[in-house]
């Protein structure tokens, strides 16, 4: 009996730990999403939740409807295979309501380098330049037309 009395503080300590554990379990009950673990170590609802989010990219076809001029230019150039939104960014909102939402102006010095900066790890036949040396600080679109980048005699085409 005496042992229990003299170890009383240890029981109190144990009680604190148990209380801590219980509080943790209660909090956990609230915080862990309900669908967690149904299919694996993740929220089973994750796909549905993501699908429910607003769409950000409109897709190439949707731009074509209104920007036929750009398309005409682009489809014969070297950037034919590059999606509009790969450069202009997600524009679903703009495509829905072009007057209210306008795409941001692009800074070609940053944009073009993202794909064309010379790097030994890129496939050898991909066109790449050492941008600093190649453009000498000028924006790329002073010489190249972004939608049809190859420069031919007689000006940008």
């Amino acid at each position: 009996m005496n042992v229990f009395k003299d170890a009383g503080h240890l029981f109190r300590l144990a009680a604190v730990f148990v209380a801590g554990l219980l509080i943790f379990l209660v909090i956990r009950g609230f915080l862990v999403p309900k669908s967690f673990g149904q299919l694996g170590h993740y929220r089973a609802n994750a796909v549905a939740e993501i699908a429910a989010r607003p769409i950000k990219f409109a897709g190439h076809e949707s731009c074509e409807g209104c920007h036929a001029d750009v398309l005409d230019k682009k489809k014969n150039g070297k950037h034919a295979g590059v999606n509009c939104e790969a450069c202009h960014g997600p524009q679903a909102q703009h495509a829905d309501d072009p007057t209210a939402v306008k795409p941001d102006k692009l800074d070609t010095a940053v944009l073009c380098a993202r794909c064309h900066e010379a790097n030994a790890a890129k496939p050898r036949n991909f066109p790449q330049v050492d941008t600093a040396e190649h453009s000498r600080g000028l924006p790329c679109d002073t010489c190249h037309h972004p939608h049809s980048p190859v420069i031919v005699a007689g000006g940008a085409k």
Binding site: N2, K5, D6, A7, G8, H9, R12, L13, V16
Partner: peptide, 12 residues
């Protein structure tokens, strides 16, 4: 910090 126990007898 004592957790309400002031027992510091030798046995404790």
């Amino acid at each position: 910090m004592t957790l309400g126990s002031t027992n510091i007898s030798e046995r404790a």
